[in-house]
Design a protein around this nucleic acid. Structure first.
Length: 628
DNA sequence: GTACCGCTAAACATAG
DNA sequence: TCTATGTTTAGCGGTA
């Protein structure tokens, strides 16, 4: 359970707060273990040694500890923080853009260049405008950093280049253009910033000039991994943001994470191929047309994903396995919104079993007990912590078109499940049903720039570009689908509201300008005092959101850019509904009253059942934007 | 003893 | 033609 990340853990940040006594008093409900005090001490020590480059770094000035102290008179609520030697940036969003300060407004750049930078590293062109994005991965419950900047970002001494994604853990040290900062999650002790780990970080940071290979070797060893081939393949595929990987990338991933396979002869690669072909958990997906390269991509049949993940988590490794960046593929269709009403099982394409191959009944994973028994050399594995996904993350952004899913030459395997056919049987976190192809498009309450299609930094393709664009004739069907998206499980109230709004837009408002927002922003008497008293970040204008939302609705009705707009409406709807402090504009409600912010009963039950969903709800509900 | 599982090796076909 | 990729067959050892 990672929800603690979202709670008020100001106490964990005490090292940067001047009013320690006050903070200390807020921790009275929890006695800080002695070990935590020690590790915090080491943390402070480590943080104080982080470097600041000679050139101007805006963030160091804007978020100096002195200014923070002036700015925050009391407790600080945040998901995490970036702590530099003399400055601290508190993470109050679940998606942050790190980059160069915005260009002169008169200079029209690409749209992506104009995304609002959260962590401003100043004017130095060593830093790209969008240098990196740090965001919370709901599925893996991890913080990930996606690199965009040409000069990359060093994390724990290893340089990550554009397109690479690195998992941040508490204590990770980032280096952006010479400015070092430590990523710290609340509740350091729970986040396993143990003395040992802090020590590791220090050592790793101090070795930052060493080659990545050296660092990797310090983390891994050469023993045979305790995972079966199928699990390692699954790990590789799941580490890819788009949930699929080429054979060669699978090879690379395995040999990178498990050095055993760097030195052994290529027989294991034969076994990998053998496993991919024979194991019914793996499915071939063709490359998109025109995409260079040889061979298919491999993905995991949806019904096996959870099992693979579970098996990986049962790792005999001391620490956590490599992060899974893969998110469920996009689908607008929801099969069943009622969690108590499970869908019939999706027929699994049956692979031909060779006569000599023992028939595997059921999941191939059920037997995937880690082959510890075979590895009797003793000793324990070191962990692939903060996995080096670098060269492995699949660079392709193929969004599978069901019609193009490979038909195996083997006739028995020629019935692939389409994306729309992913099982929605309970139990499954509600987000599995949500129409989001990757973390960038999760309906977090982020700024609307996130509604842009995700651009793969390696090939500069838009992820949605392959998605079939619905014709205007399908709007009704889509709106029906929209209504049916399982977000309704979590935010039932919004569905009827959305429907009525769309209806109104259809009948009366397609050509009119957006109504003036009745929101007087912070002066509205309906707005209670800010929940985040110490937050002083610029907050997006509420009326702008409303206008954006209307424009999006209109664009759907007009049939333009539907794919994006539909998702954006979802995003906007969730965003608005989850701002209980904000009065909904009368135009958008039937009664003029603010819709109930409470979750529906089924949603509540579902969320309680699935901590990750709860976590997400909390994350969204506690977003700083709720202060509008 | 048997069935199952995971692994290894190899032959072969095919695509780029 | 070569190489990478994918399929299939065969057999071995470990485990339940």
């Amino acid at each position: 359970m990672a929800s603690h990340k979202l709670e008020n853990d100001s106490g964990s940040y005490s090292e940067i707060e001047e009013n320690k006594e006050e903070l200390g008093s807020k921790k009275q409900t929890k006695t800080e273990p002695e070990a935590d005090v020690k590790s915090n001490g080491r943390l402070e020590s480590r943080i104080s040694k982080l470097t600041v480059p000679g050139h101007e770094m805006r963030i160091v000035e804007d978020y100096s500890n002195k200014k923070n102290a002036e700015r925050h008179s009391g407790e600080i609520q945040a998901y995490a923080k970036f702590a530099g030697s003399t400055w601290t940036y508190y993470v109050k969003k679940i998606r942050l853009i790190l980059g160069r300060e915005p260009a002169n407004q008169s200079v029209k750049g690409k749209e992506e260049d104009n995304e609002e930078v959260d962590m401003n590293f100043g004017p130095s062109k060593v830093v790209s405008r969008k240098h990196a994005v740090v965001e919370y991965n709901m599925q893996g419950q991890t913080w990930n950093c996606t690199i965009y900047g040409r000069n990359g970002v060093k994390v724990d001494g290893k340089l990550y280049k554009p397109g690479e994604v690195v998992n941040l853990s508490s204590g990770s040290i980032l280096d952006v253009a010479g400015l070092q900062m430590m990523f710290v999650l609340p509740n350091a002790s729970e986040q396993t910033i143990t003395e040992e780990k802090v020590g590791e970080e220090m050592e790793e940071a101090e070795k930052s000039e060493e080659s990545s290979a050296t660092i990797e070797n310090s983390v891994y060893d050469n023993r045979k991994p305790p995972y079966s081939y199928s699990v390692m393949i699954a790990q590789a595929i799941l580490s890819s943001p788009d949930c699929m990987m080429t054979l060669s990338n699978i090879y690379n991933w395995i040999s990178t994470h498990y050095p055993y396979y760097r030195t052994t002869k290529s027989g294991w690669q034969n076994s990998i191929r053998h496993n991919l072909s024979l194991n019914k958990a793996f499915r071939k997906v063709p490359r998109k047309s025109g995409e260079q390269g040889k061979g298919m991509k491999w993905s995991i049949e949806p019904e096996f994903r959870e099992e693979f993940i579970a098996k990986t988590k049962k790792t005999p490794y001391k620490k956590t396995p490599p992060p899974f960046l893969c998110t469920p593929p996009f689908t607008l269709k929801r099969e069943n919104s009622d969690p108590e009403h499970t869908s019939p099982p999706i027929p699994t394409p049956v692979r031909h079993q060779s006569p000599s191959t023992p028939k595997r009944e059921g999941s191939p994973m059920t037997e995937e007990a880690p082959s510890e028994s075979k590895d009797k050399e003793g000793g324990s594995y070191k962990t692939p912590t903060r996995a080096v996904l670098s060269d492995i993350i699949a660079s392709q952004d193929y969004s599978p078109d069901p019609s193009t899913i490979s038909q195996s030459k083997n006739p028995a395997s020629a019935s692939p499940a389409t994306n729309a056919a992913y099982s929605t049987s309970s139990p499954a976190p509600f987000w599995k049903y949500v129409a989001v192809p990757n973390p960038h498009d999760w309906p977090h309450v982020g700024s609307y720039d996130t509604i842009s299609p995700y651009r793969n930094p390696l090939n500069n393709h838009m992820v949605y570009s392959q998605l079939p664009q619905p014709s205007p004739k399908k709007i009704d069907e889509q709106m029906h689908d929209l209504q049916g998206v399982d977000l309704a499980n979590g935010f039932e109230g919004i569905s009827s509201w959305r429907e009525s709004m769309v209806q109104k837009l259809r009948t009366a408002n397609s050509g009119t300008s957006a109504p003036a927002s009745p929101l007087g922003a912070s002066t509205s008497p309906a707005n209670p005092p800010r929940a985040w008293g110490s937050v002083s970040e610029p907050i997006p204008n509420r009326s702008t959101e409303v206008e954006n939302k209307q424009q999006l609705e209109t664009s759907v009705v007009a049939g333009s850019d539907n794919d994006h707009a539909v998702r954006a409406i979802l995003d906007a709807s969730v965003s608005m509904e989850k701002q209980p402090n904000v009065q909904q504009p009368a135009e958008f409600t039937q009664t003029g009253q603010a819709p109930q912010p409470a979750l529906g009963a089924t949603a509540q039950a579902h969320i309680e059942e699935h901590p990750s969903a709860q976590h997400y709800i909390q994350a969204s509900n506690t977003d700083v934007r709720s202060n509008i």
